[in-house]
Structure formats: C-alpha cells, structure tokens
Design a protein around this nucleic acid. Structure first.
Lengths: 127, 127
DNA sequence: TAGACTGTTCAATCAATAGCGAACAGCCAG
DNA sequence: CTGGCTGTTCGCTATTGATTGAACAGTCTA
C-alpha cells in the first residue's frame, strides 16, 4: 500500500495531450508567466507553492497551478504538508519546441532593447 | 498622386513592439488561429477579410483582425472597397522564433488524443 | 491530541472579451 | 447620383476567467 500520503494526487496532463491553444492560453497570463520563470530558475522539486512572488492570494495561486498542470507545464508532488513543483521542460519542449524559451527569454520587455542587427523589414502600408 | 484611399489606414503594430503575453493571447483563440492558418496558406495580399471560413459574423471578424494587427501578426492594406491581408511571417518569426510554426503545424489536434470529456490520464510520477 | 502550517475547494464578485444586430462610411459599377 | 458591396463602429448581451475571503482537509511538530 502506498504510505506516501492519503491526499489525492493532483491531476496531471502530459504535454502530448495538450492542444496548442491550451498551452498558449496557459502562458498568456502575467501571473503564470512569473510562476514559470521562477520555476525555471530553480531546481526540480525545490520550490513549494507558497514560495512564489506573485501578487495574488493563495486561492488564486492554487487555481493558476491547476491551469499550469492542465497545460502540461508543471508537475507537482506532495512532500509532507507542502507541495513541490517541477517545470516539465524537456517534455514540454519536445511537444512545443521553442515556446518555453520564448517566455523565459522575453523577461517582461517588449523587445525595445534588442540588438541593432535589424534585418530591416520596414515596410509601411499606404505609402 | 496616391489615390490609394481616403479611408483611415488601420493601425499596425510591429512585432518588435509586442510583448510575448500579447502575442500568446492573440494566438490563444480558435477563430484567430484559423485566420492565421488560412492566411499562411495563401499569398500575400491575396485574401480579403470576408473570404475566411470562420463561424462568426463580420463584426466579430473585424474585431479579431484588429487583435491580430495589434499583435503584429498581420498587415492590412486597402484595395478598393475591400481590405487585403498579409501574414507578417518573417518579422514575426524573427521576434518570436518558432511560435508561428507551432500554431501552423499543430492543425487543431492535441497530438493524437482528443476527447470530449475529462481525461482520466492521471499518471503519477511514481518512482 | 492540539496546534500551526500548507494548499484546495466553495460561493460570490468583477473585469475582460467574444458575440450579434444594426447603423454607418468609403469604394466601385451602373 | 444611386445602389450594392465591404468592412468598421456602436450598443448590448453572454460567457469566460481571475480574484478574494472563508471554510475545509491533510501533514508535521510539540
């Protein structure tokens, strides 16, 4: 018998079973983007749910984690009273190549501080 | 003289000025995904707004095009009474590498399994 | 066993957005 | 000039999703 925990394990969805639209919707939220970024900067199973620096209550936080799970972005495991998280980077990367990199690289700016190596596609309509 | 049109040109946003979140949100919609896909399968300036096979009225359609413009995904130009569209593939690709490919490749299915109910696919990490 | 701590669930609220119908504005053909 | 066509804007409704506070459940420590 499993003496691990009597608590229901969270429902996980594999990235393979996630439609693109769901993945995009999951990442199109500032709070969840922040969660993913902090998670990417930590080791697997290191961060517990309560240790993230996001401006929402724990109820909303729990909801966001649920969305991330359903999108195949994270995996959760119970560790005593806490719940530790892991970013499913390899699996998600295989299903949606480059997507995670985009979110992690673009840390909040809209691209104004890019390099000057502009390929110069500067066409304007109605010229 | 330029007899292009006396109509106000639509406001365009360059992909460089678009935050990731905006790009993701723009693509996280079934109607807009369909628009982008059809646009990708046609030549530049070939499709007019009314020629897309989407299940919405023209008012909603106009709104979706507005969102796509604001996300730097499309460019529009007036051609007589019609308005022709162009997918900003190279510019958008340079700003968000791989993102457009993801949406275009994943043509509506979630890999292999898509069901209408709750997927009892809770597999635990186990070991 | 009691208590503190962590996270989930519930009920309700609020904001954002998608949708439609109708009215409006520019463009071309007659 | 008039009418038909194309697309936008406006007013409105419905739906979705984010958020909170309170209550609940499970786990560890004292």
């Amino acid at each position: 018998m499993s003496q691990r925990s009597h608590r229901a394990a969270p429902e996980h969805t594999h990235p393979d079973d996630v439609p693109v639209q769901t993945a995009l919707a999951a990442l199109a939220d500032p709070v969840r983007i922040q969660l993913v970024r902090e998670l990417a900067g930590a080791a697997d199973w290191e961060r517990t749910c309560g240790t993230f620096d996001v401006p929402v209550g724990k109820a909303a936080l729990s909801h966001h984690f649920s969305v991330l799970r359903a999108a195949g972005l994270i995996e959760q495991r119970d560790a005593g009273p806490k719940r530790v998280n892991r970013l499913r980077r390899p699996e998600f990367d295989e299903r949606f190549p480059g997507l995670l990199d985009l979110v992690l690289r673009d840390a909040g700016d809209a691209g104004d501080a890019e390099d000057a190596g502009d390929s110069g596609d500067d066409r304007r309509p109605g010229a």
